[in-house]
Design a binder for these strands. Structure first.
Length: 258
DNA sequence: ATGGTGGATACTCCA
């Protein structure tokens, strides 16, 4: 059976990280790469470089903040850039169907700090997302939801759960929102294959966090219950965080036997 | 000690 390899990576500026992305695509050769925080208006999207690397691209861009894109070996159809009922000018959502699989690339709001206006925006955003996922699952049996969720779901996903207790990215309401997404009908691909591994996808640029491995696992690949049994591998690739001028996030890669 | 670094933008916001 053929393998379908899909990855997510918050690149924190596609303009700065384009060389990393191109190197990584050549080395890893995924069928699909979903990226977040491109921070590019659509007219500045580096489409030629992506095409030269052998990928098609769709994108929903924004200057300075946010912005999402999907690079794919195969053609994409049924593109969407918004969640219904969520009037949001921020470009955080990009959906498409590829190889018969419904793909939803998300850049979930960060939330700033617990109790802030942005935190409320995040919780509301996740609530509306839940309703949308239910509708999508009615239409698409095989679905992958991936991206920067800005939530560390469990204690094992945090280098120091005591320090992070009640903090944004690890607060109970956010973790509940993540669990609610799973309850809708998804599974966390990384935990399917590594139930007890302490591995992270993001380290703050400050305080030498990467050197001290003070990280969180906040980037995820979820597969619908129908597709999850076909997930044969899911790994975090820490290597790009050691490269010169890295993103603060690293890629997560999942493989499906389809 | 309540910091720090990095990206984009324009003299500050966001993460």
């Amino acid at each position: 059976m053929p393998i379908f390899k899909i990855a997510t990576w918050n690149v924190n500026s596609l303009r700065v990280r384009l060389p990393h992305v191109l190197t990584w695509l050549r080395d890893v050769e995924p069928h699909v790469l979903a990226v977040q925080e491109t921070k590019l208006p659509d007219e500045d999207f580096p489409l030629d470089a992506i095409h030269e690397a052998g990928y098609t691209a769709i994108f929903a861009g924004q200057r300075t903040y946010n912005g999402v894109a999907i690079f794919s070996r195969e053609k994409t159809t049924e593109m969407i850039t918004d969640i219904p009922e969520l009037d949001d000018h921020q470009r955080r959502v990009l959906g498409a169907t590829i190889d018969g699989i419904r793909i939803l690339n998300l850049y979930v709001p960060n939330g700033e700090r617990v109790g802030s206006e942005k935190y409320q925006y995040k919780l509301n955003w996740l609530n509306k997302l839940d309703a949308f996922l239910k509708e999508e699952l009615k239409k698409y049996d095989r679905m992958i939801v991936l991206g920067d969720f800005n939530i560390a779901p469990e204690e094992i996903d945090v280098h120091d759960p005591r320090l992070w207790e009640g903090q944004v990215l690890f607060s109970e309401p956010e973790r509940n929102a993540f669990r609610n997404m799973l309850k809708v009908g998804f599974q966390d691909c990384f935990r399917l294959h590594s139930p007890s591994e302490k591995s992270y996808t993001w380290w703050d640029y400050r305080l030498g966090a990467f050197r001290r491995n003070m990280g969180l696992r906040i980037d995820h690949i979820l597969a619908s219950n129908a597709l999850a049994p076909q997930c044969v591998k899911c790994e975090i690739d820490k290597a790009p965080r050691t490269w010169e001028r890295p993103s603060d996030h690293v890629p997560v890669i999942a493989e499906f036997s389809i």
